[in-house]
Design a protein around this nucleic acid. Structure first.
Length: 284
DNA sequence: CAACCGCCCTGGGTGC
DNA sequence: TGCACCCAGGGCGGTT
């Protein structure tokens, strides 16, 4: 569920509630939550203890905190990962995976994850295009909210590919941050079917598609992101409201808000794609 | 090398 | 009530 807008909501929450704080205790209650930290839970906790959080950053759906030790703690929320700021003594969540306590004795930071696709890891920073990134993020493309995002270059690269347009939108090495929800919404806004071949898209169409993706994610960010259930929440456990503004994703059978035709659902990469049969006809 | 497929995992929902 | 099954899905490793 968490795509760029939802991860950005979490980043902002962490920036105001975790930056500048020094970690004193780390409890890893589920090893799978740090499976990408190969040296294991003890090493993870040891290297974080006594370390201060200097900044909280994001690229696409990846989130990381810069530490005064020179490392970064990298997070990916997967489908159901949450970062929660909770007062000490607040009841443990059922799927609490990692708990952080701080020197200021203020609220804890908790990583909660029902479906365990998410996780945390410590990583070293590497320089990519004059920018320091955690090593596992080095191959992730800039997202549309990055000041250095170059839409013209992305359009060129997209039109060079031989694939379906939705696959390209979801390719995090081409443009990052877009997942199934915002891909379907951007395609609906641009009146493109997901299976349209990228190499047959005109440059204006591809440009418009990227613009639509950027706009829909900005609109979602303004209202706190998209939540269908309790799986995506901000650091205080609150849902976002953008699900009320969705035109395609999850709208199977409902009338298209543009033309009234019932929205269809089609299988796509072992999941679903939602689109309007009239506004977004199948490519020939 | 680019494209693509299957797997990782859990629990809420549904149908029998 | 209980069981089997389906579905959600980003990223990664392996295959074509």
């Amino acid at each position: 569920m968490p795509e760029l807008p939802e991860v950005e909501v979490v980043r902002r929450g962490l920036e105001s509630h975790a930056s500048g704080r020094t970690i004193t205790h780390v409890d890893v209650m589920h090893p799978r939550a740090i499976r990408r930290h190969l040296p294991g839970a003890v090493d993870f906790a040891d290297r974080l203890t006594g370390v201060r959080i200097d900044a909280v950053r994001r690229r696409g759906k990846y989130l990381w905190v810069e530490l005064d030790s020179g490392e970064a703690m990298l997070a990916h929320l997967g489908m159901s990962g949450q970062m929660l700021v909770r007062d000490e003594g607040y009841e443990d969540e059922k799927h609490l995976r990692i708990r952080f306590r701080f020197a200021d004795k203020g609220p804890e930071l908790r990583f909660v994850d029902q479906r365990t696709f998410g996780g945390l890891a410590l990583s070293e920073m590497v320089k990519v295009d004059e920018e320091l990134l955690p090593a596992p993020v080095a191959h992730i493309a800039r997202d549309p909210m990055d000041p250095a995002f170059d839409a013209r270059e992305v359009v060129k690269a997209m039109r060079r590919k031989h694939t379906e347009v939705k696959r390209a939108l979801l390719d995090q090495t081409l443009v990052s941050g877009i997942g199934n929800i915002y891909a379907d919404e951007a395609l609906w806004r641009t009146k493109l079917h997901w299976a349209r071949p990228t190499d047959k898209l005109t440059a204006p169409k591809a440009t418009g598609l990227l613009q639509a993706a950027t706009e829909v994610m900005n609109e979602a960010l303004k209202v706190g992101g998209t939540s269908f259930d309790a799986l995506y929440v901000n650091i205080n456990g609150q849902s976002g409201y953008f699900d009320r503004s969705l035109n395609a994703y999850g709208q199977e059978g409902k009338p298209c808000t543009r033309c009234g035709t019932a929205i269809r659902r089609e299988p796509f990469m072992n999941r679903s794609s939602f689109s309007c049969p009239r506004c977004q006809p199948h490519p020939r």
